[in-house]
């Protein structure tokens, strides 16, 4: 039966359950956090970075994405629709042949995969590509 004590315990339990997701999400950097971290708040030009990805991904578990950022020394790739948006940070070293990286992502839903590039002169550029996801890839 519901005694006064068990009702209170129930209430505390419910409060704990509602607090947990808030606490968890507070630790995961948002898209804005990631962009601020990468660019330091500098302005970003919407040009000069190609994101090559399929228009439709039947399976979000494995989506090929290629970033081509001529003149870049580093790139950051974001999947803004995922629970953890910051996918990849890549720095190109002195033996790199081109600022290009192809990899495969998990995409939880339809979204615009966005790549930021830091150029050799310290400026920033970005590009994006929308991927329509039929079956999401972020598991339970």
């Amino acid at each position: 039966m519901f005694t006064r004590r068990s009702t209170m315990a129930l209430g505390l339990g419910a409060a704990a359950v509602t607090l947990v997701p808030l606490k968890a999400s507070a630790n995961i950097p948002t898209v804005e956090d990631a962009v601020a971290d990468f660019t330091g708040g500098a302005s970003v030009a919407d040009e000069g970075v190609s994101v090559i990805a399929p228009e439709i991904a039947e399976n979000g578990e494995n989506v090929p994405v290629e970033i081509d950022a001529p003149g870049a020394v580093a790139i950051m790739v974001l999947a803004p629709g995922n629970p953890t948006p910051r996918v990849v940070d890549a720095r190109f070293g002195e033996a790199s042949g081109a600022p290009r990286l192809a990899t495969r992502l998990r995409l939880g839903e339809t979204q615009e995969v966005t790549a930021y590039a830091k150029m050799a002169d310290g400026s920033y550029k970005r590009g994006k590509a929308e991927v329509r996801v039929t079956i999401g890839g972020c598991g339970g």
Binding site: N62, V63, A79, T84, V87, D89, R91, G93, E94, S96
Partner: peptide, 15 residues
Amino acid sequence: GKMVLDVDLGVSVAA
């Protein structure tokens, strides 16, 4: 002996 590429990966990289 020279760096080509140095990548940090997050959980949104596919298996």
